[in-house]
Design a protein around this nucleic acid. Structure first.
Lengths: 237, 237, 237, 237
DNA sequence: AATGAATGAGCTTTCATTCAT
DNA sequence: GATGAATGAAAGCTCATTCAT
């Protein structure tokens, strides 16, 4: 009934006229439009990183992007929607980083270390946004889904790695790959979170050493200079 | 701390009346008053658990506590203040749970398992609030401090445990107790978070098994039925 | 997700917290509250009459009522809601005015005239709001219902009057009471609308004369000094 | 005229560029241009009929017309302006319909009935827009003028018809032609409004019967099979 | 003449907090 | 101490209209 933007609920007749929404769904028609969209997205990410989700105002984003308030809504449905897009791009970026090719000819311990390094490298630049996804996930099912999807993906990948090492005879065949991947994933994930998102100061090498050691021992990789698990206990002799 | 914008006082800036502030500072004078305070605190916790911090309104709390809107401010400074108090009580409860006495005569693996069980048991009933502390920590330094304090406390305790086991000759003396406690703590913490706060369905025994195994192996405890590290097959000596 | 009032659609979690709404539904608890509510309602009516529905801002209403913007929402859900209440009270007032007691001993023509006079007297002070109900009815089903309910009520009453006169032998028994009441009602209604709402200047006596004449003739009442319809054409002799 | 608040120009106040305004004032220069204009006008009418004036967005109109947002302003000054044009064309159409030639050789009652039928036929296809004119009239003087002009025109025509019948000796010479035309016009107008615009379901024949009967009796036409007023039972002489 | 992106004033509604009773 | 009404700053979103291409 009320023609104005305000009146959010209890609208009797229509809502946002659907026409505006269509255009947003269609996406920018011109090159310049696509460019603007990207600019606003980038500005949004910057502001979110600086102020967090709750504290970010659309006004901050448009100020950072140097456009008018209305322009924002030419490209995005809402503050929630931009955040979802920023989050998605971060997740995509991380997943891409994780799937980097294995180094050929590396031993199992080295491969574990490489994998952890990749995770850390993928996490670090996205740490703030990942922290926000966590935060926002508390009140948005969609974000929670995204967050869990990233986890699952990482856990599944780790589990595959464990199975591969078991098949190759490097890793203890008795450990449950999925459950172990689950807790080791939690370890890595949370360590990075504390390190990069909460800002606890760690020494990069020490972290990598510790994570590598725990991971390797957990799945029963032979200590460096040891013969593979499952063989006589004569490793150090 | 409050993420809300509205500078809420009727005048431009004034603060509460002297009498009101005094009453708050003084704390409840009568038994009935103390009781009221407790009721409101309990109601607040319930509502926070149900709706999260951001979505909780003071109005919800007073409704749950069956008191008038104004009564809330007789006992608490602000919404943030009640949350801080709820959070503090949760942290206290957890710390108390963790410091439970060791079972006498248990072997090192059993002691690890017991410690993990204690953590899980302490975490479970407080999971939702812990998740909220995380959330609120994103915009509140005070909460962040609280959160990190809990971590430090747990990590320190774990590190002491590792050192003890190293001293006793059970654990690998070469692992860095602090750094290892750090990453293992991250593992346990995050696993519980995913399990209880995000609601991923885990089997209790499997979780405990996996965590115990990883923890034990990480610090080089001998496998069950094996002689301790440093003895017979004394690899690490 | 957005904690703020703005974010009107796409809200993921909750809406207005329900607590606010409950209080509004409950109605004012104190005498002072009831008084405030009435004041705002009166102010709203004044503003609506002055500016129309679309042009009225909640800001205008609160200014007229000399209260803060937020106070409005302590008592009413929305601009639409106040209007609905104003409209309802106008309709109630009109219906009450129409049901005034018949003058005893008046002839049928006089009774018709009295009825019309009552309608006019009931319409006049409510004319502006009735016009707005019409306007708002175009976009709100609820208002349309209200508007039609008033019509039905008036038509039904008129139809009963016609039937009574037919029974008494004054009115032509051959006219369809309902359909005739329908078109005569339309005549009266619209005449008042043009007169009071659109502001066309009519002479009160002339209007009443014309309406009375048309109405009376339509249902076949004998001309003044004539014998009732259905008898010989010797009326004027 | 626009009820919207937003002073919509990019700068504080500027007005359209000279070239744009000139083009609008000049009107379409090419055939294709005239065609475009017509298309947009038609689209506008369709959208107005579907959504009402307030709920119609310029965006809806251009979407329906399959042109760009800016194109609209090449041909029309504003949303209000298109509506005015749509309204004007509806009024013109109605007036044209009303002035259809009288059927030769018809008796007075038949002529009344014919006139009413013409009105109904002219009203029906334009009902929605007429309703909107009413609605918009509430906040636009220009529309109110248009609306009243239509009324006046119809009333004047009716009055002339009554005078003619009085002159011809068919109608009661004592009724005031103008005032009677006024209330009878109100009756017909409002009946059509309720029927076609508000959607109350009437039987076409019954409506026409009732309107005809009331109208005829109101101006004192002899009942069918009766001799004209002023003859035999010449009451009114 | 056509396009579609840009503009920004303006409105509604929420809710933490205060204060008179 | 308790009550509940009052406050008002703030923020999200819409959409008529303009203007650079």
């Amino acid at each position: 009934m009320s023609p104005r933007g305000g009146s959010p609920m209890g609208r009797v007749v229509s809502g946002p006229s659907a026409t505006q929404r269509e255009r947003r769904d269609a996406g920018p028609a011109t090159t310049k439009g696509r460019q603007r969209r990207t600019e606003i997205l980038a500005a949004a990410r910057r502001v979110f990183e600086e102020r967090g989700f709750v504290e970010t105002r659309v006004a901050d984003i448009v100020a950072a992007a140097q456009v008018a308030q209305g322009t924002f809504y030419t490209y995005f449905d809402s503050k929630d929607a931009v955040f979802a897009e920023v989050a998605q791009s971060v997740i995509d970026d991380m997943l891409a980083g994780l799937h980097a090719p294995r180094r050929p000819g590396a031993g199992p311990r080295q491969r574990v270390r490489d994998g952890l390094q990749r995770f850390i490298d993928a996490f670090r630049p996205n740490a703030v946004i990942i922290g926000l996804i966590e935060q926002v996930g508390t009140f948005t099912p969609e974000m929670r889904r995204l967050r869990l999807a990233l986890r699952e993906s990482f856990v599944a990948m780790s589990a595959r790695g464990i199975v591969r090492m078991q098949t190759e005879g490097h890793a203890d065949p008795d450990v449950d790959p999925l459950m172990t991947a689950e807790v080791l994933g939690a370890m890595v994930d949370q360590t990075c979170y504390v390190w990069f998102s909460l800002g606890k100061e760690f020494d990069a090498t020490e972290v990598l050493d510790s994570l590598s050691l725990v991971w390797s021992r957990a799945i029963g990789l032979p200590e460096d200079g040891e013969t593979p698990a499952g063989e006589p206990g004569d490793a150090a002799t």
